[in-house]
């Protein structure tokens, strides 16, 4: 059970991200929360592909068949990271536009009618 510390770290990261999304009112802080949640998911994917005592799946030619961690979760994590960067850029540019339009980043001051 103590060896499940990586999974606990994943759970902690996801909980921190969800807390930020639910309780913070600043849009920049919510974007940071989404990024933390994304880090948790990436760490979970990497963790799933690790074999105990393994090395990175890169052949050097002089080692005689070492135990290698699985390459497919790492490749999909690479995909996930690049998509995360793209989504982060899009979110931040939308936040900049929201700030220009409303003059505030507080979520409850954005509606105009009901607050």
């Amino acid at each position: 059970m103590i060896a499940n510390i990586p999974y606990l770290t994943v759970a902690g990261l996801i909980i921190i991200g969800l807390y930020t999304l639910l309780f913070k009112k600043n849009l920049i802080k919510m974007v940071i929360g989404i990024t933390i949640l994304q880090s948790g998911v990436n760490l979970f994917l990497i963790t799933l592909g690790y074999r105990m005592g393994s090395v990175a799946p890169i052949f050097t030619g002089n080692a005689d068949n070492p135990v290698m961690s699985y390459p497919v979760p790492q490749a999909l994590t690479l995909t996930s990271i690049v998509i995360g960067v793209a989504v982060l850029a899009l979110m931040l540019s939308l936040v900049i536009h929201i700030y220009r339009h409303h003059g505030s980043l507080h979520v409850s001051k954005l509606g105009g009618d009901d607050q």
């Binding site: 690049v82 850029a89 931040l92």
Partner: peptide, 17 residues
Amino acid sequence: KVIAGLFAIVLVMAIAT
């Protein structure tokens, strides 16, 4: 693609802000 894309994002955001 990544060089041009990321630098375009940074440059456009910096210019606009």
